[in-house]
């Protein structure tokens, strides 16, 4: 045990003593990236509950959901977070897309309307966070405005950001492309669905948001 480690534990003790509230971490990303799948896994692993419903149809989450007091332990360090699962961010929403996925016109229009409200809610939440986990589907192009905007917001506020390259169970996934796009930010490659590298993610969460 070096002096640094002792100082660190002393510091975290003081930090806990004076901390006004737990770190609020938002899970962000484009629709369908796997945000709720990841939120469910985190909440299930550390509290035993679930967060919300998952669907292959985009904009499944249309209201932000907060789960308070999730304590994550990794390699001897422990961090307690409020986790917010947010609606997928987008710059366009066309109800015809939902019809193509088999919904009727009325349902599709309602989903589109709720989805626009969800995007606004997700953007507003950015003002009230202490850090962000940005989830990207590693089979998709990472250079999107949504990703650029979330990263820009965190950089401007000097808040910690962790990029998750999700869906690495799929053969066409390319976490390297995501790293190439945003090389200045830490990145963890996982499968939220199958659990690959999830321990690595918990370690990064404890390191960056502790």
């Amino acid at each position: 045990m070096g002096i640094m480690k002792r100082m660190k534990s002393k510091f975290s003790f003081l930090k806990k003593l004076f901390k006004k509230r737990r770190a609020r971490i938002g899970i962000y990303g484009p629709p369908n990236a796997g945000k709720t799948t990841l939120a469910n896994r985190i909440i299930r692993d550390w509290t035993g509950d679930a967060m919300g419903s998952v669907s292959k149809i985009p904009h499944e989450t249309r209201r932000a959901r907060r789960r308070e007091g999730v304590t994550i332990n990794s390699n001897g360090s422990s961090v307690t977070l409020d986790v917010i699962d947010t609606p997928g961010l987008a710059t366009k929403i066309d109800f015809h897309d939902f019809m193509e996925l088999g919904m009727n016109e009325e349902e599709s229009k309602r989903r589109a309307k709720e989805a626009t409200e969800g995007v606004i809610e997700a953007v507003k939440w950015l003002d009230d966070l202490d850090g962000v986990i940005l989830v990207m589907d590693a089979t998709e192009d990472p250079y999107t405005q949504v990703n650029v905007t979330v990263i820009g917001n965190m950089e401007a506020r000097k808040l910690p950001l962790l990029i998750v390259a999700n869906k690495i169970d799929l053969p066409e996934s390319s976490p390297a492309r995501i790293h190439g796009a945003f090389p200045q930010h830490p990145l963890v490659s996982i499968s939220a669905l199958e659990g690959q590298n999830i321990d690595l993610l918990y370690q990064e969460i404890a390191d960056h948001f502790g």
Binding site: L89, T91, K92, K109, T116, V119
Partner: peptide, 24 residues
């Protein structure tokens, strides 16, 4: 811009914007 775009989307006239820029 994203918020106002969402407010102005209507089923039959406007489905939003495409916007592309480079990372800061």
């Amino acid at each position: 811009l994203i918020e106002l775009t969402m407010v102005e989307i209507t089923p039959d006239n406007f489905s939003g914007i495409e916007i592309e820029s480079y990372p800061v």
